[in-house]
């Protein structure tokens, strides 16, 4: 008897949940006119040209550990070149900006699952992304991968690293390169150590557990500027470009952002922000293109 009851209860619960799931969107669709306050980000996409009274919320997905593009600032808030540009663009569009720290090697999954509306964080544009249907903005940054070594190690070229251990961050373009276009180079190394953050890559190098770190040029140069005893091997190992990734179907959203950024370039805000980031200023395509 008791068993019966619990089974019935469980069934009722399942039904109730299904009903809720099915019913939830219905009232939202029924009452857009009399309840404009309820219209938030996803609803805005449905309503055509009219700009909703409420601010649109735009969620920017960043790697919180990727200075100088995106990182946790001294004041405890996210900052960085990309964050500042995005903030300025949202201000221009009248959108409310929310920042979401993604797990870098899961970034596209998180984008798909609506945890953020874009991935904008020194992200290398990969062919696989467009193939998978993601909307990618026009590139805004030209990136180059380099090998960073200890200054006293005497390594002068990638050839010197034959038989050595090289660290790379999991989920970065550097890792993709070593598994792809630069696989031949990678095969000359003793092994490639994949770390889950740049800090760990650099700690491995500092602690002599690896002999070099394969990393984006701006990251390497900003690290070398702040810490003594490191050198960058003067050899560009893969020219890449950074862009912003949106979900497939969000081409309009992409266009809005691109338009706002272009406006920032024209009114000088973009250059003003870039001045705060001397390490990357030379690679910014909109300023040097």
């Amino acid at each position: 008897m008791k068993k019966m009851l619990s089974i019935l209860l469980a069934l009722a619960l399942v039904l109730a949940l299904c009903a809720c799931g099915a019913a939830a969107p219905a009232p939202a669709a029924d009452t857009p006119a009399d309840a404009p306050a309820a219209a938030d980000a996803p609803a805005a996409a449905d309503t055509p040209a009219e700009v909703p009274a409420e601010k649109t919320k735009f969620i920017m997905g960043i790697d919180p550990e990727y200075p100088p593009f995106s990182y946790l600032g001294d004041d405890g808030n996210y900052t960085g070149f990309d964050v500042e540009v995005c903030q300025a663009a949202c201000d221009l569009l009248g959108w409310e900006l929310e920042i979401f720290g993604v797990n870098w090697d899961q970034k596209l999954v998180q984008l798909d699952s609506m945890e953020c509306d874009c991935v904008w964080s020194g992200m290398t544009i990969l062919d696989s992304m467009t193939e998978a249907g993601y909307v990618i903005s026009a590139p805004y940054y030209d990136n180059t991968q380099v090998l960073m070594v200890k200054a006293d190690s005497g390594y002068k070229s990638s050839a010197d690293l034959a038989g050595k251990v090289v660290a790379v961050q999991l989920g970065t373009s550097g890792e993709a390169l070593l598994n792809g276009d630069l696989a031949d180079l990678a095969s000359t190394f003793d092994s490639v150590l994949t770390c889950d953050s740049f800090l760990k890559c650099f700690t491995e190098l500092a602690g002599n557990a690896v002999d070099a770190v394969f990393v984006d040029l701006p990251v390497a140069s900003s690290y070398a500027a702040e810490h003594e005893g490191y050198a960058i091997i003067n050899e560009n190992l893969g020219a890449e470009q950074y862009g912003i990734a949106f979900r497939s179907g969000d081409a309009e959203l992409c266009a809005s952002i691109e338009g706002a950024v272009q406006a920032l370039v024209e009114n000088g805000t973009y250059a003003a922000i870039a001045e705060n980031y001397p390490d990357i200023v030379n690679n910014l395509l909109f300023l040097n293109g």
Binding site: D105, L170, E175, A176, N179, L193, E204
Partner: peptide, 15 residues
């Protein structure tokens, strides 16, 4: 960064 099974899985998933 110990390359055990899950780390390799993550790398494959990513690439």
């Amino acid at each position: 960064s110990y390359q055990e099974m899950f780390t390799i899985g993550k790398q494959i998933a990513n690439s």
